[in-house]
Design a protein around this nucleic acid. Sequence first.
DNA 1: CATTCATCTTGTCCTGGACAAATGCCTCAG
DNA 2: CTGAGGCATTTGTCCAGGACAAGATGAATG
Lengths: 309, 309
Amino acid sequence: MNVSPKSEPAGLIPIGEAERRSGVAKETLRVWERRYGFPSPVRDAAGDRLYTAEDVEKLRLMKTLIDHGDRPARLAPLSREDLVARLLTPSPANDGEAGAWVEDALDRLRRHDVDGLRELMQSAIYAQGLARFVQDNVATLTRAVGEAWIGGRLQVYEEHLFTEQLVRILRGALDGLPRPAAARPRVLLTTLPGEPHALGLLMAECLLALGGARCLSLGAETPPAEVVAAARAHGADVVAVSFSAMVPAEAARRAAADLRAALPPETELWAGGASAAHVGPAPGVRTLPNLPDIPEALDHWRSVAAGPR
Amino acid sequence: MNVSPKSEPAGLIPIGEAERRSGVAKETLRVWERRYGFPSPVRDAAGDRLYTAEDVEKLRLMKTLIDHGDRPARLAPLSREDLVARLLTPSPANDGEAGAWVEDALDRLRRHDVDGLRELMQSAIYAQGLARFVQDNVATLTRAVGEAWIGGRLQVYEEHLFTEQLVRILRGALDGLPRPAAARPRVLLTTLPGEPHALGLLMAECLLALGGARCLSLGAETPPAEVVAAARAHGADVVAVSFSAMVPAEAARRAAADLRAALPPETELWAGGASAAHVGPAPGVRTLPNLPDIPEALDHWRSVAAGPR
DNA sequence: CATTCATCTTGTCCTGGACAAATGCCTCAG
DNA sequence: CTGAGGCATTTGTCCAGGACAAGATGAATG
């Protein structure tokens, strides 16, 4: 009986909508109100909570910070600006010197010049090769876009637009690469439920394919049991899972451990993405927090596993 | 403190997980138990509900049927087989005669011969053109895959795999098409929050691009306010939104009406996808439930809007 | 400096009631 | 027989306020 873009009487947001938009569960919203006094929504005639857009924005920032390890009690009293500042500090002094290329790309994005953006990216690939493009340009650009979004200098749809064009470019490049059926290792790529970001996956696939691996991507949000079934059915040498910064550290750790336990021992498990570092040194899990780790891991696999089969 | 693939003591599923897997909200699960006696989960030592995998499977089927207009009170007493039967009846007698091509494709999918699957699709494009491929082969194949999944004859990851390969093929075809910057109409494609399926969008984009339109895809799940902002910023003549069968009919109707109200009057709104028919005849919204409607709509737009600008 | 243990914090789940919106059903006039 | 209008029922969402397990923190100890 309820819909996402519910009729908003005066721009006020009911609790279900607030959950969807901020990512904070309804129960948690009520308990935060009880414990920390934030948020303190007004009520409609029926006594139902109505949140302001500012509340929801602050909740979204809090959620992001909590996923990075912060604690709600510390964050609740802070202002929106404080939260934004705290989100941006971890990555130091890269605001002005982001590089002319990145600035150029951001500029085209702001002007919605999608063709120009794609051309810029395509020529960067031709100029320096796909590997350096993925490792340098894309990584920097993605971070710059993320920060611009946090700081409110970019609309949500502009971020969507950016992702869409980037996916397009990378997919195109990938299709141009040879895919020898017998190549090794056979790598199964995916993301676990709750992690919808497939971009990191695509970047990883580029580097793996460049390194001569045989890639098979399942796309995002594959249930763990299905990952295991697919790995078995496809005879994968390696299962590569991407954890974006969105995933709470603890969730990533546990998911990796569970998957490791369920996979055949001879299948390697590689964890990539921003939260991969938090997966920590786990037995039988190779963490590749940075993209350049990928070619290295491939080399290592070949030197170790060259014998069998 | 909770994670998707939570440690399952004996294959039993706590309520949060059940919500994620079935798509039925926690509150609704409790209220169904109170009213209809289904599901009736066992409890752990703390009194928390624990659902079986069969319960969750039945819940997922019920949710699908309810989204199609059925009512929970009627469905709760039925068995899993009854639900499956009810889901499959609407599309009559297309089980055996699905066509040799579709059978071939399904077969390759079951054998995880992804390269073979892509080759098959690619040659179909060459043989009959992109338009017929999208309208006939893809539409039939997608339905066949969906039905195989409902009937349990296909794993979830196999469906992921299928989607991934299809997206790849379509994206590749799309990149081969000319994109004259001045072409009209300018169409903005997207999906509203809650609708993650981007495949329909991609199919529509193919047909629109073939029809000479200038497409700009925002990808999935763009908030309505952002759709409006993007349409304005990009000077879109048409905003095309895709509603898959996953979207409840009422939700689709309301979302379309809200979006229509928020868009500038001179911007047309087109609704496509399986639930588009349920959007019903709404003022100012053009519903395109079937893919062949797209070229038609393009012709109509050109004949009407040829004058202005 | 590392490790163990007690204390705090935090998210999730519980019950049982309430209500508004939407749907289906029935009646009545044309 | 058909269509419009009104009433009853169905259904999803929300509320309050309490409880608890598991993780994080910090202090005391070896």
